[in-house]
Design a protein around this nucleic acid. Sequence first.
DNA 1: CCATTAAGTAACCATCAAGTTACTTGGAAT
DNA 2: ATTCCAAGTAACTTGATGGTTACTTAATGG
Lengths: 219, 219
Amino acid sequence: MEYMARPAKPNGAVAERNPKRTRERILSAALQEFAANGFAGARVDAIARRAAINKRMLYHYFGDKEHLFREVLRRKIAERQASAESLSGDPAESLPFWFKLSCKDADWVRLLEWEALQEADNQLIDGNSRRALATRALGRIRQQQALGYLAGEFEPRHLLLAMRSLTMFPMAFPQLTRLIMGRPVSDPHFQKQHAEFLRKFAAAFQPAGNRRNKTNFEN
Amino acid sequence: MEYMARPAKPNGAVAERNPKRTRERILSAALQEFAANGFAGARVDAIARRAAINKRMLYHYFGDKEHLFREVLRRKIAERQASAESLSGDPAESLPFWFKLSCKDADWVRLLEWEALQEADNQLIDGNSRRALATRALGRIRQQQALGYLAGEFEPRHLLLAMRSLTMFPMAFPQLTRLIMGRPVSDPHFQKQHAEFLRKFAAAFQPAGNRRNKTNFEN
DNA sequence: CCATTAAGTAACCATCAAGTTACTTGGAAT
DNA sequence: ATTCCAAGTAACTTGATGGTTACTTAATGG
């Protein structure tokens, strides 16, 4: 059977071309879909519908579903690197800061979580730049220890892991958090309360001799 | 076309019946498959193959994929409740204990993670018994605070959330942990080191006036 | 010892979803 | 002006996958 010629636009609409916008729409729709459903759960058709583009374009720009996923992750990582650098060394500020950031960007936490669950035979996406980022973070901690703002009795690696744990966990496990706190993670009251807890709890990271003031308004 | 009669066992093997064992095999295979691939990623055929049973039996015993998933979670939760109760009140012991437990039972952490990512319009699986468990845990913390083993300056809820964060995070995000620690989470050396870190760090949860000895062999 | 039922089997099917085919067309470069 | 390619479209293919049909047979209670 011969392939039948079809008009590209059966309705009279003009097909304005805009490769940049199309790419952007796909990436943005893909971020939402992947964050919501993960790689296996995400539907290419759903991404296309969400982006209001033809599915074929997705393959045109990104090759296949997996490459699209990697690109989404890569972009999000790049986006986060900026805020990663601008960060006070004082844990009483940085812990609440990181916690609030996780609250604001649930998609990010979810993406990392999906990545964690991906059967990890494959290598880390964007590994080099992330390794570099981690190295810089460790360097800052070492610096803060030397300045006496962070307890020197602990290894920087463990301190960093503990800080990440405390600030990301609630968003990563909303059901457990709700079980414990009695409120949904999305509740602003919970977020404020827990940020305040972290500010006080940050004393644990400070040298015993140099514990800062625990009241609300220091400086 | 008439349906053709087929022998149930074309090879001469005897079909020994064992409903209990069959159910058990399905649940065990499903636990592995769901922990590894999540609900969307899990394949019913893979579960059947793993369990070495006919796929039809899975539907016979559990109705459908989702009911099977819920049953797997329910059983794992029940299994964990036992170890949840047997736990010292001293954070210098309980933090490393919980951390090691997470390391040992990666499937559990992964299941919770998959559950967290499930689009949460549905209600919590086995909510009542889990709520009760959380309430008991909070009660123990309040008790320990009264006895002076835990800092009274923090709300029990926040303390519990912080403890869970510190002990579960590394297994939940192995890729981030590896990025920070330079070693895979599965590395026994890392696990020992971090357990030791948590033992020392537990001082953060103890009252300022009642900090325990930080050396390795107390008592 | 026989009827009934629960446990078991293999083949089948409908649907869904990733990826392709086979085209058309806007617009930049020659 | 005309060619050419990237951008765009709709229909199609193919394989996987959750679930079903249509049976057989071991075991158990009357």
